[in-house]
Design a protein around this nucleic acid. Structure first.
Lengths: 210, 210
DNA sequence: GAACGTCGGGACGCAACCGTACCGTCGTTG
DNA sequence: CAACGACGGTACGGTTGCGTCCCGACGTTC
């Protein structure tokens, strides 16, 4: 290819960032409103006040568009503060999750995409890696620190631990769709700590005492 | 209306049950495959080997059809066996939930409809009442019995308890989509019992704000 | 200030689906 | 055994969305 004579695009021949971000927010809103299944490029374009071509110039298809959004959002990893105790760490994590799921958009988009992931391999892959990263981070860092401190047994099952930690918040906010008051977090955190302590003891062979 | 001369429909003029049920299973499969958002009557008809008219004669619209399916499935309440101990009751419940979510159809349809419920008031209502029934049943019966036995404090927060019980299984099977081995159930049940014990101790009493 | 070249917008062809109207079929009823 | 009447199937207009093509507009570069 003799591209030597070519000069870089300039002037009006350059993607306008404002439009790109207008599309992005429109996609989020549309995704929340109708879900991935019914997401239409035309609706996105309408909502963004933009032509369809503007979208197709940036992303090859609807799937590409959504995949890009997902990786953009899921890419940023959560900071897991070290408060010095498992209980403290958990409270922070629960607060962060609750805060995230309190946003209307997130609370609608996340369950929707997770459901869609069950049937769309591309979305599943993108989402699953993000989810795995998240779970691993929680498992390794949060549980790992607790093990180092001696708060949990070294042979704690990381996956089971993640289920016990993340499950209740997600169920409460995304499925049951009941608000989680900040005041409830400490209690939930304490309950989870108790659960984690028991979970690493292995199968319930012993009788439980009051 | 002078319906006196009317005689009851008979012969070929009666809905054929085989076709009705063919439609029903087709809807379930289609729902699992493409989700509610993309569910199309034509596809259902094709899959069932039936005409669209056959469907429209039975249900007024796509929404009606799905609502009917939901109430049919969600209507049947789960039997909660009394094993004599909270731990035993929990193990049973977890097994039942795990068994249900192991079915491919259920594991795809349930999250999908729950996500859809977030934006469709009609589905939300049907599903929410079913969910509430379920949660109440778990809360009242399972927790209630444990309280009677003295295993849990009388002022246990039912809602928080349900979150701790149902959340982990749901997360594991429907979101994380990792298999839950039967051997893991006892451990998870034991962990949940521990969590419930702590949860009813009340909030961390130092900070109680709304 | 003219040339450049991509930009956004509107229009197009194509495909899928919705919900309805009509038509011949068929089993029961009297 | 004939009449009944809802049955299932086909065909149809209308709508929506996809992805593409062509056009005039526009800001930078030389």
């Amino acid at each position: 290819m003799t591209t030597e004579k070519r000069r870089a695009p300039a002037g009006a021949a350059v993607l306008r960032g404002e439009i790109t971000s207008a599309i992005r927010t429109a996609v989020m809103q549309e995704l929340a409103e109708v879900g991935y299944g019914r997401l239409s490029i035309e609706a996105v374009a309408r909502r963004a006040g933009v032509s369809k071509t503007a979208i197709y110039r940036r992303w090859r298809s609807k799937l590409d568009l959504v995949l890009d959004m997902v990786s953009a959002v899921a890419g940023r990893n959560i900071p897991l503060l070290d408060t010095g105790s498992l209980l403290g760490d958990l409270e922070i994590l629960l607060h962060v999750m609750a805060r995230a799921l309190r946003h209307r958009l997130a609370a609608q988009i996340i369950p929707d995409l997770l459901a869609e992931a069950a049937r769309n391999p591309q979305i599943a892959e993108k989402l699953q890696t993000a989810l795995d990263d998240y779970q691993q981070a929680v498992g390794r860092i949060l549980i790992g620190r607790a093990v180092e401190r001696g708060e949990l047994s070294p042979d704690t099952d990381r996956r089971a631990a993640v289920d016990l930690i993340v499950g209740p918040v997600y169920w409460r906010m995304a499925i049951s769709r009941a608000p989680l008051e900040a005041a409830e977090v400490p209690r939930m955190a304490a309950a989870i700590v108790a659960a984690l302590r028991v979970a690493c003891l292995g199968p319930a062979r012993d009788e439980v005492e009051v």
